[in-house]
Structure formats: C-alpha cells, structure tokens
Simulated scan of single mutants.
Amino acid sequence: MKKFLAVALLAALQGSWLFAAQEVTVKGELVDLVCYIDHAAQGEKHMKCGRTCINAGLPPGLKGEDGKLYMLVGEHKPLNKEAAKYADKKVTVKGKLVSAEGYRLIEDAEIIP
C-alpha cells in the first residue's frame, strides 16, 4: 500500500510547479514580451518601441539562442528599469530558472551586456 501511495503521489506531482529553481546562464536578445508575442517585434528596428514598452511597465523577456522564450524578473520585483537599456540587443542573463504550465521565468535575473 505504501508503494502504491508513493507512486500515486509522484504521478500527481508530475507536470506541477513543484520544481527546484535551477541556476542558468542564457544568451539571447532582450525583448519586450508583449510586442514579441503579439507580432514578433524584435531587432534594431524595434529598439525604440521596445524601450518605451518596457519603461511603461510591460514585461521584459529573453529570446534565447536556444530558441526558448523567458520572462525576466529581479529579486521579487520588476526588472524594467535596467532591462529597458538593453531592449532588442544581445545580452547574457544569469539567474534562477523556474517553469510552470509551459512558461519559463528567470528570477533574480542579472543582465550582462
């Protein structure tokens, strides 16, 4: 019976958000998530708009060289003021990777130009 309960508990937790944060370093382009998700806006042509949107409070993200998209936050606070300087530029981000329900978040993010 104990073995059955352990297997049932593991099955129930599979796919849940109960994963430990993993330290990562990811290279990519810093994007404003709203414009990127809405109409794939990125690159030098979008730089002014990206800075404006991130400064206005829209969430910054990273389109990684690995093809994945990450939301970026500081230590339980927005990272917008720092991130806006690097909108649509190549950067490296270090932090703790967590994910849930298909979303990836790098928290305690440090942006390295």
Results as ranks from 00 to 15, higher is better:
residue 9 L to T: 15
residue 75 E to H: 11
residue 40 A to V: 04
residue 49 C to K: 11
residue 27 K to R: 15
residue 80 N to S: 14
residue 73 V to A: 10
residue 102 G to T: 09
residue 88 D to W: 00
residue 29 E to I: 10
residue 81 K to Y: 06
residue 12 A to H: 00
residue 38 D to W: 08
residue 108 D to A: 14
residue 6 A to N: 01
residue 77 K to C: 02
residue 86 Y to R: 01
residue 33 L to I: 14
residue 32 D to M: 10
residue 62 L to G: 05
residue 103 Y to A: 13
residue 5 L to S: 12
residue 29 E to K: 08
residue 13 L to N: 06
residue 61 G to Y: 08
residue 43 G to A: 08
residue 25 T to D: 08
residue 8 A to V: 12
residue 61 G to Q: 07
residue 32 D to S: 09
residue 6 A to E: 10
residue 60 P to K: 11
residue 8 A to F: 12
residue 34 V to F: 13
residue 49 C to D: 10
residue 13 L to K: 01
residue 37 I to S: 11
residue 23 E to T: 13
residue 43 G to L: 08
residue 46 H to M: 04
residue 60 P to I: 02
residue 79 L to H: 03
residue 24 V to S: 08
residue 22 Q to D: 12
residue 74 G to C: 02
residue 12 A to C: 13
residue 23 E to M: 02
residue 80 N to P: 03
residue 100 A to G: 04
residue 103 Y to P: 00
residue 61 G to N: 07
residue 100 A to Q: 06
residue 83 A to C: 05
residue 8 A to W: 08
residue 64 G to H: 04
residue 18 L to G: 12
residue 33 L to P: 02
residue 42 Q to F: 01
residue 31 V to M: 07
residue 32 D to W: 06
residue 73 V to P: 00
residue 98 V to A: 11
residue 81 K to N: 04
residue 92 T to K: 13
residue 77 K to E: 15
residue 108 D to G: 14
residue 58 L to V: 02
residue 39 H to I: 01
residue 62 L to F: 07
residue 30 L to E: 08
residue 68 K to N: 14
residue 19 F to W: 09
